[in-house]
């Protein structure tokens, strides 16, 4: 019997437009759409993509619980054997939507679900324990390879053939353990690993420890009235013309811009170059991301000491964590040298 698959995508991959359509509510379309067409070709006669549910990324991320329920209701009405979401690559909002859809389907419909995310997508940390996530490239340039990997895992899930480790089967570890028999006992394996390590040869632990990189909260500001506060943003707000040529996506650097003698960020002098959200509102009034006007008012009233004379800006979309960490370290060095006390960081 042909198995039934429902596919979830965002407005962009449904062919309904980019950021200007990111507010749209869930829609159901019969059959395959966009990347679903290629999935259908990969699944062959074994399974049919009976429907595609799509939703705008902003609508989903800003109304998480109600949208999750609505999308789940739409998916459930097709009685699927498997649900596929994405791939969402390194897209933050889309990755969350795919994660929410897959987790809901897995837990509430008791139907297997999978998505494809770039390993640094924040959705991986949030959902990888609960759902199958196929590691994919950071952008849609990797679509073909992503769909092949997702199609292969889909076929295995539909046939109930998942036997090997997460890595062997092509998904990110869910942190689950399964009992099975090795040819060698634990003592032998441990000694072999120790010898491999000693000789500088590759070895694979059987018990991976989780990596937590949490920074403990810094102590609170004691004296707001005496404090110098700095503004940083990842929403790509730069002086008109983008003098430092900050990239619209996958930023390689950040910019530092003077706020001296400015009371307000005007639409004439500033703009956003961020490629991951609809810039209409911030370009109408850049204070919606870099809240200079309100800070100047509070500064005049003496609510806090003073605003640092520069603000820092970069583009957060698609930017590798490694770059973001470096930006943070370099910004902190400058803030330290200039005697700043605390930071307001705004993100879109």
């Amino acid at each position: 019997m042909t198995k039934r698959v429902v596919h979830y995508v965002n407005q962009f991959f449904a062919g309904q437009g980019g950021e200007e359509s990111a507010h749209l509510e869930p829609v159901t379309v019969e059959g395959a759409l966009g990347p679903g067409l290629q999935l259908q070709a990969l699944l062959g006669d074994e399974a049919q993509v009976v429907a595609t549910v799509w939703c705008g990324d902003n609508h989903f991320a800003e109304n998480l619980e109600s949208t999750r329920r609505e999308v789940l209701r739409r998916i459930a009405s097709f009685e699927p054997d498997l649900v596929i979401a994405g791939p969402a690559f390194n897209a933050g909002r889309y990755g969350m939507a795919c994660g929410e859809v897959c987790r809901s389907v897995t837990e509430e419909l008791n139907v297997p679900a999978l998505t494809g995310l770039y390993p640094e997508n924040p959705g991986v940390e949030i959902y990888s324990r609960d759902i199958y996530i196929v590691p994919v490239a950071d952008s849609a340039r990797g679509m073909k390879v992503a769909l092949q990997a997702m199609g292969a895992l889909a076929a295995k899930l539909l046939n109930g053939e998942l036997q090997g480790t997460a890595e062997e089967e092509g998904y990110l570890s869910r942190g689950r353990r399964k009992n099975f028999f090795f040819a060698e006992n634990g003592a032998v394996r441990a000694v072999e690993m120790a010898l491999a390590k000693f000789h500088g040869q590759p070895f694979r632990t059987e018990f991976e420890m989780p990596v937590f990189d949490r920074v403990p909260p810094a102590p609170a500001l004691k004296d707001l009235k005496g404090a110098t506060i700095a503004l940083v943003n990842s929403g790509g707000v730069v002086p008109m013309g983008n003098p430092d040529r900050i990239e619209v996506s996958s930023a390689s650097h950040f910019g530092r811009y003077s706020l001296e003698s400015l009371e307000d960020l005007t639409a004439q002098a500033f703009e956003s170059v961020h490629g991951g959200y609809d810039r209409t509102y911030v370009n109408d009034d850049p204070d919606r991301v870099v809240p200079l006007d309100a800070l100047r008012a509070l500064e005049k009233e003496g609510v806090f000491g003073r605003l640092y004379e520069y603000y820092f800006s970069t583009v957060g979309t698609g930017t590798p964590v490694k770059n973001c960490s470096r930006f943070g370290t370099e910004i902190a060095e400058q803030l330290k040298a200039d005697g700043v006390d605390a930071v307001i960081l705004t993100s879109t």
Partner: peptide
Amino acid sequence: MVKEIERAGFPVVHIATIV
């Protein structure tokens, strides 16, 4: 960025919509 700035000792408040 939030984490690295905080690691340097600054209290940072993150104003963001997707909590």
